[in-house]
Design a protein around this nucleic acid. Sequence first.
DNA 1: GTCAATGCAAACATTTTGCAACTCT
DNA 2: AGAGTTGCAAAATGTTTGCATTGAC
Lengths: 186, 186
Amino acid sequence: MQPMPTRLPPADRDEIVRTAENLFREFLRDRGLKYTDEREDILGAVMGTDEHFEAEQLLFLMRQQNLRVGKATVYRTLKLLVECGIVKEVHFSNKQVHYEHTYGQDPHDHMVCRRCGRIIEFDAKDVARLRTLIAAEHRFHALAHRFQIMGLCETCTKSCPIGPQARLLGGRKKKRPNKEPGTRRT
Amino acid sequence: MQPMPTRLPPADRDEIVRTAENLFREFLRDRGLKYTDEREDILGAVMGTDEHFEAEQLLFLMRQQNLRVGKATVYRTLKLLVECGIVKEVHFSNKQVHYEHTYGQDPHDHMVCRRCGRIIEFDAKDVARLRTLIAAEHRFHALAHRFQIMGLCETCTKSCPIGPQARLLGGRKKKRPNKEPGTRRT
DNA sequence: GTCAATGCAAACATTTTGCAACTCT
DNA sequence: AGAGTTGCAAAATGTTTGCATTGAC
């Protein structure tokens, strides 16, 4: 879906996928849960995507590969994968939750372009350091963070030097989308 | 709802509420929109809360004060207030959106205790500085950020010195809290 | 053989929308 | 007067759940 989403040499990749599978299997076993075909397929699909995705997209992707699983199972399994630490939730919009697999990747956070929606990842090391510092100041024990920078990517900045925030992503949409004439009144 | 939620001397407060009203009025006028009683009431209610709230809560609060507005209007107006910069969206859970008015306050971000849900605010200056730095590195023009630290507050850290993350907030809810491992293991 | 997992559809919760009546400006 | 606004209830989302059936261990 994007130019070069892969962040790892394909050699390491298989290795990592395998390790993730083992991790998940153990995680399930420890809890008396089962490693089913569906769960295996879903993990496979997740690990095969280096993009951010939403539940429905994953489902669609799997259907294209002739892997048939129910929507509910996807949701249920994603939840497990999050608990297990292989997948992370990302909250870009206020709508659906996005996911990304983070297993075998360096921790990173995201920049979101408000105009074109492009997403840029950046190393989270500095953020993590700052978070620990801030937490300590408040006697808080930091376990994780969510960080997101919103703004304009290089391209969009150029094409809109000053544009007084003219119609940024997320602005209100026009009225009538497309309506069909008819009697609706109750 | 909390010890000392107010962050401003009451004197400044009225001043700020008034300024916010003006800001909103201008914002509306500039766009050919109207400053209606409902919008005024909603802004009032919003400015009267130093807490984070969700749409439905605000509605409830207003009803208690005999201010009757429709739910749809609340949603529509909150959206305007966000656009206007008086209100900010906060995303604590994956469920509903939370809001807070930020007008006249120092920018801050939040720490969320995973155990008790407590929310601690902290100055966002350092975060903002870091965000600008990171953005510049990627030739990105930062306009805003979302930052949230998840972990354990002081109290909860004490009451759970090491607790291997036993049932943190946000964990799965179903199933009985602590069940006996019957015949797992094979 | 058991207990958990699946798929489906119905249930949910939150937010958005269409529309007729109504109100600022 | 007229464009914008309101409230209501219906619709739209995205996610979860109940339950009978299927499947892993």
